[in-house]
Every structure is written in C-alpha cells, then in structure tokens.
Design a protein around this nucleic acid. Structure first.
Lengths: 245, 245
DNA sequence: TGTTGACTCTCACGTTACGTGGTAGCTTAT
DNA sequence: ATAAGCTACCACGTAACGTGAGAGTCAACA
C-alpha cells in the first residue's frame, strides 16, 4: 500500500507517515525504484501498535524503544493498553461526574470543594515517573520530610489501582521459583509496565528489586498483597535482569 | 492562591500557568507588588473550563476565543462537554473492542479486515470540532443555523414548544408504516415546519433523517417522545424525500 | 536580625510532532 | 503525450509547553 492509501485507512496524514519514517519509527518494508514508500501488512500491524501508544499519550521516542525492543511482547502490550484504556474510561467518568456536580453547583444545589472541581484532570503527566523518581531521590533525604511521606502516600493511593492489578498478579505466583517460567512472565509484565514510563537499565531494575526489600516502606506496601512478595520480586527481578542481555 | 498551590491543586505545571498568563488565556485577578500571581476563585472556575476544553483537544487559541466570547454560556458549554466526553468514552470502547479482536486475531480465532484494525482511531479530525464550530465558530457555514442561533432565549423557548408539539404528533403514529398516509402526512407537517428555517433539498432532508439515528444527541432527544421515533422519522423522511419530485 | 530554604519572577532558547508550502519527479488514464 | 493526481524531499513554521539561568521575595528559624 502506498502512503495515501494507508493514511486514509487509518485516519492520519501523509506527513505523519513521512515523519514516522524520518525518525525511524515506522519504515516501510518496501521502497520502489522511484523512492515510493510501500507499506506491508506487517507495517500496518506496527502502525496499529504505534497509534495505540500514541493515543495514550506516549512520546514517539518511547514508542520507538518499546516496539523495537526484542523482548517486546505484542500480546502483553495490547493487554496493558486495554487496562490503560479502561483506566482512561474511568477518568472520563470522573470528569463527567465533575461536570454534573459543577452544574448542580451552579444552581446552588450543592457545595463543592476546590479540589473536587478538578477531579479527573490528572491526565497530563503520568505519576509513575514521579514515583520512581521519588524512590531514588528520597534515598538521600533525611527524616525532615515527614510531610513528604504522607504526601507520597496520597499519591500512591491515586495511582494505586494500576499497581494493584500487577501486584496481585505477582502475588498469585509468589510461591513459585523466582526463575520459573510463570514468575518470569509476570516479572516481564512488571518490567514492561515500568519501562513504559521511565527507562530502567538492567542495573536499575535489579536495584529497584533490592530496594523493595531494603526499604521497609516499600516492603510493607508490597507485602500487603501477599507475604513475602517483596522478597520474591527482588529475586525474580534479579533473575530477569541477569537474563536481559 | 499562588501559582504552585493552584498548579498542585489541578495537576498542571507552574510553567503552564505562566504560559496561560502570557498568551492572555488566564490572567490572575490579582498581582502583588512583587509581581506574584494571585489566583481568585473565579480564576479557578475559568481554569476548570479551560482544562475541560483542553482535555478535548481544543487549541488554546480557540479556547481563548470561546471563553472570552461575551455570549459564552457556561452551562451550555458544560453540557456540550459532557456530550463530547460521552462520545469519547464510546470511542474508547471502540478501541478496547479493537484490542479484544486483535488479541483474538493473533490467536487465529477470527479474521480481521484492515479497516477494522483501526476502528476507533479517528480522533484525527474530531467530530466535536465540527459541532463546536457550528455552535461557536463559523456562523457563515450554516445559514439556517445562524438564524436559529440569533433568536432570543424566549423565541427559542417558544420554538422548542413547537418542536415538541410536532414531535408528539409524530410519536403518536410511530408504529404505523413509514410510507402510510398518516405517517407521510405528519412528516409533511414536519417538512413544512423545518422549511421555515432554511431550504432543505430532497437530499438534505433525507440526510437529516439519517442523522437522527446516527447522532445520539438527536436520537436521545427525539426518542424521549417515544421509543423508536428517531428511526421511524428517518424511514418516513426517506420515503417523503423519494416522493418529492 | 541575619540567614536559610522554599517560592517566585522574567528572559530565552530547546523540544515534540507534526503543518504548510514549494518544487520536482513518477504513474496512470485518456 | 499530456494532464491529473501521487509521490518525494527539503526547509521553515507552529503549538504548548520544558528547562535551565539569574535574580528577587517571603516566612521561619537561629
């Protein structure tokens, strides 16, 4: 298929396809003598993936990394997409509820706190990266930020659902061997999930696992999904990291 | 409230607030001696509006026009938002369905046409803008609409009554055959009534009927006069149009 | 009362993801 | 073989902020 054909099929511009080619995000499988881009069936599947990610607000650079990752599992990714879309749907519900309340508020029928007026708006920048950064940053910080702790607790509650799902899936298999297929499969999911937001090198990923055990705040949080989950994750993550290269 | 406070409350960056000030989208009601921005309660309400529009993908320029328009009706805007969000939700459902199908497709359980793979992606040129443009922008686009829009509130109310009367009369006969004499009679009334606003060609009239079914806003509005009324009207209008020449 | 430390301000250049011409070569139908 | 419609490749433009840099402000503690 030629550019325009593809563009019309998926509802994007020709320029966008050019752009994706330029930055190496989606290179057509074939190029004619005259330099015309010819897209294959595979290309279309990749494009579908790309648009899914884009729809969720991922930067193209990250999308490129993700789909070019040899360990990239299309099925896992699709399932993750689905969960995120479901989350987005819930967020929309939030917004809709906020509108309804605002309308009532305008008629003076109810009172509204400032916070409430903005419920559901936290699309903008994902909290995961923040959390990850907080973990590493907090390492050096002393007790003086007892405030920060309570704050991060609130934040964690906000993004809890996402994590909970994966934690629960991990907890299910926590009595398996850390290097078992099922354990590694779940850890892979975890890895994909985390990597979607911040780049974890092999070492960083391993260290993260170690910290789950070393930092009791995390241990406590994680182990509430199942006794010994933190330790299991550390081990499984270490195995996963070692097999990474 | 100072910048950071506001930023944290609504989940945006300080820079964003600065930016909105720069481009005159949201200027704080108060500025201290030292140049500190102080946001009022009103400012927060405006910000809420702005974020609603932004969430739906409106360019800031357009948002500025909209909320600075003296004829801007906050309540109406909120209701429009709600409809748009509901539409977006349905689009998400589409995407989710597409994912489910893709997953099944990967397992070879079903076949998928290329088009299907991209269902739900047509955010590209969102249909909202079309509606919004009709509502707030290019009045010149639709003269009939412009007429309607220029009517006073009372006039509109009266008009509403008239619509209701006709809808009710149509609903009475909605179980008759669309090409029956009584149905065609009522549709004729409808046609005459509509032509008071603008000239509907044969095709336009037919399309209008189709839209009653395709656009859920109309469907909902119409069907509240009787289940299936929208569909009945579409059919009857098609018959009427075909007999027109 | 002086000194932090957290906030705030204003430049001003950087970035992402394309849009928007413009010019020139290619392909297909008449 | 000529026009209509695609295609390509620059290359600059734009929107909505991000990201320091350098400097002033404010409340709290020593």
């Amino acid at each position: 298929m030629k550019v325009k054909e593809v563009a019309e099929l998926v509802g994007i511009s020709v320029r966008t396809l050019h752009h994706y080619d330029e930055i190496g995000l989606l290179k057509p499988d074939e190029v004619t003598e005259a330099g015309y881009r010819i897209y294959s069936e595979r290309n279309l599947e990749d494009l579908q993936q790309i648009l899914f990610f884009r729809e969720l607000g991922f930067p193209l650079k990250k999308i490129k990394e993700i789909i070019h990752d040899p360990t990239f599992d299309r099925e896992e990714a699709l399932k993750l997409h689905k969960r995120m879309l479901l989350k987005k749907k819930r967020q929309l519900d939030q917004l809709i509820e906020t509108i309804d309340k605002t309308l009532l508020n305008m008629k003076g029928e109810i009172e509204m706190a400032d916070q409430e007026k903005f419920k559901g708006f936290d699309f903008s920048h994902n909290p995961y990266e923040e959390e990850a950064r907080k973990r590493w940053g907090d390492q050096a910080v002393d007790e003086a930020n007892a405030k920060l702790e309570s704050k991060s607790k609130e934040e964690r509650q906000e993004l809890g659902e996402q994590f909970n799902t994966i934690y629960r899936k991990l907890a299910e298999v926590r009595h398996e061997a850390p290097d078992s297929a099922i354990a590694q499969e779940r850890i892979h999911e975890w890895y994909v999930f985390l990597n979607a937001f911040g780049n974890y090198s092999k070492e960083a990923f391993k260290n993260l696992g170690q910290m789950y055990v070393d930092d009791e705040r995390f241990t406590k949080n994680i182990d509430q999904f199942g006794e010994g989950l933190a330790a299991f994750m550390r081990d499984a993550m270490a195995v996963y990291a070692d097999r990474m290269d």
